[in-house]
């Protein structure tokens, strides 16, 4: 029977917990907004993860982790373009570029990065395919899910905190009139500079995230930092209507529990009657 649904209703944490507890084997395929991802599991352990649009071959992963230089990757692509990840791994070990530990650690970091990004997805159709597993050419690294779930939950808490601090991404930003820090003297990352370049009262945070290809978590994290530094303030986008207050829900009235002792014979009668139907 299928395990499928939407992350909106059944989160990545829930899914990994289920796969871990049920010790499932197969591949979880997620079609998120704008991109896809897949994670494979054996007996409830994560063994492979890939983000749809990204270059997930071993050479690219080793370059990203700093084990190979751009030149080395270029040379590998020229000489061993058709080699599988396993063949490439052996080639690199034999050539003395990396050792087995480097490969496993790089793959592990890559897989965890993919999975932790999935924790921030709040929308996306998923399905679990027990018959699909990574190809024989792929190197799999078994990772226990408990720690992944704990770390993912921690990141979710960060996400929840940031969502509480910045609940509405449809609001815009503007630079403060008298900033407490000079932006030119600050050490900003490339992503932060990209966000800064889009800040003006007509651009909502959601629009900035879209323009800079940042997730909701990433844009919130950057904006939160800029807010804390006193560089920007939140404003309603020009021309937007004022927000409506949420309706309050009345509290529940407690109901006294029934007296079970007087009802044993009633329940016995009910059981007999329903059995006879």
């Amino acid at each position: 029977m299928p395990l499928k649904g939407n992350l909106r209703d059944f989160s990545t944490t829930n899914l990994l917990n289920l796969i871990n507890l049920a010790k499932k084997t197969g591949t979880l395929i997620i079609d998120g907004p704008g991109q896809g991802a897949q994670m494979s599991f054996r007996n409830g352990k994560l063994i492979y993860a890939a983000m749809g649009h990204e270059d997930g071959n071993l050479a690219a992963i080793l370059r990203k982790s700093g084990r190979l230089t751009d030149e080395q990757v270029k040379a590998l692509r020229a000489r061993a373009a058709t080699a599988s990840d396993k063949e490439l791994g052996l080639l690199l070990i034999n050539a003395g570029y990396v050792n087995q530990g480097d490969i496993i650690n790089s793959l592990r970091s890559h897989m965890l990065e993919v999975v932790y990004r999935l924790f921030t997805w709040v929308e996306g159709l998923f399905r679990f395919e027990p018959a699909i597993m990574p190809g024989d050419d792929k190197i799999t690294v078994p990772i226990e899910l408990e720690n992944v779930i704990i770390e993912g939950s921690r990141r979710m808490q960060e996400w929840a905190h940031l969502a509480e601090e910045l609940p509405n991404l449809d609001m815009a930003l503007k630079f403060t009139d008298r900033p407490t820090a000079n932006i030119r003297n600050m050490s900003l990352s490339v992503e932060e500079w990209k966000v800064v370049s889009y800040i003006k009262p007509t651009n909502s945070m959601r629009a900035i995230a879209r323009a800079t290809s940042l997730s909701d978590l990433e844009i919130r994290r950057i904006v939160y930092g800029l807010l804390q530094a006193g560089l920007v303030e939140i404003v309603r986008p020009e021309g937007a209507p004022p927000p409506r207050p949420a309706a309050a829900r009345p509290g529940a009235r407690p109901v006294p529990p029934p007296d079970p002792k007087q009802q044993v014979s009633v329940v016995t009668k009910l059981i007999a009657r329903i059995r006879s139907l």
Binding site: P2, A22, P254, P258
Partner: peptide, 29 residues
Amino acid sequence: RAYAPTPYVVAANKQDHPEAWELDDLRIA
């Protein structure tokens, strides 16, 4: 449960449907 601490059961409906989740998965979910 908050209204009254009476016993209850959970009925996993449409179990005859090919799209139905298995009980073990439902319990975890």
